[in-house]
Every structure is written in C-alpha cells, then in structure tokens.
Design a protein around this nucleic acid. Structure first.
Length: 108
DNA sequence: CGAGTGACGGACG
DNA sequence: CCGTCCGCCACTC
C-alpha cells in the first residue's frame, strides 16, 4: 500500500461528508481502513491541492475543535464555512452530538 | 540511516 | 477540565 493510495482512500471518505455535518480525523482514518492513523489524515489534507473540491472544513479533531495550523486565518475560514452550513459552535467546539457524521455509520 | 516533527488520539494523574 | 506521556507513521533535516 503506497502512501498515495492511502491519501486517495482518505480523500474518498472526506468527499462523502454531508453538508452541515462534520467528522473527525480518527473516524476518517478508520473508515479508510487505516485505524490509528489520524495523523495521516491531517497530512493528506496538508498535501491536498487547493482546487481539490474537498470539504476539508468538515474535518475536526476528536474534541470537535478546529486543529491549530500555521495560519490562524485558515482556522477562522474553516469556522466561517461551517457556520455558513448551519454548524454551530459552543465554546470553540462544535456540538458533535448534533453535527457528527460517522463514515462507518453507512448513512452516506 | 537516525532524530525530530506534526490538520491526531487515547490513557493517566 | 488540564497537562503529560506514549503510540502512530510519512516527511524533513
């Protein structure tokens, strides 16, 4: 299994995240058949081209928060995009009980 | 090839 | 709820 293939698997899962929902790095990794590779999901997003049509903003960490990045503007951007889809934040975190989408839930 | 790093996550105190 | 410590693995130096 090449790294590129793993990235493609990860992208495929992210592409299925429904509008108005979010999921986590860990769940994406598991759904891609790569359990315990949450870091790889972040790395895949980092490597994803800008014009990749991926809903990258629907990916959060296990706490339902936006993971810190090099540029704080990206974090604000992500929150804006989510709020535009109706995703609500509570003390810097998304209410996962309300917006979480489980890739393995089959609810695609 | 070895050491450090990071869009992460779970266990522990 | 918070800080700390490991496990994880591709990538960088």
């Amino acid at each position: 299994m090449d790294t590129i293939e793993k990235y493609d698997l990860i992208y495929a899962v992210i592409a299925r995240i429904p509008r108005g929902s979010v999921t986590t790095y860990g769940r994406i990794a598991a759904a891609a058949g790569l359990p315990r590779n949450a870091r790889l999901v972040g790395r895949a997003l980092r490597a994803a081209p800008d014009g990749a049509d991926l809903p990258w903003h629907r990916v959060l960490n296990a706490h339902g928060a936006i993971s810190p990045r090099d540029e704080a503007s990206d974090e604000r951007d992500q929150r804006r995009l989510l709020e535009a889809e109706g995703v609500t934040f509570r003390r810097g975190r998304v209410m996962l009980s309300r917006h979480l989408w489980d890739p393995d839930g089959g609810d695609g």
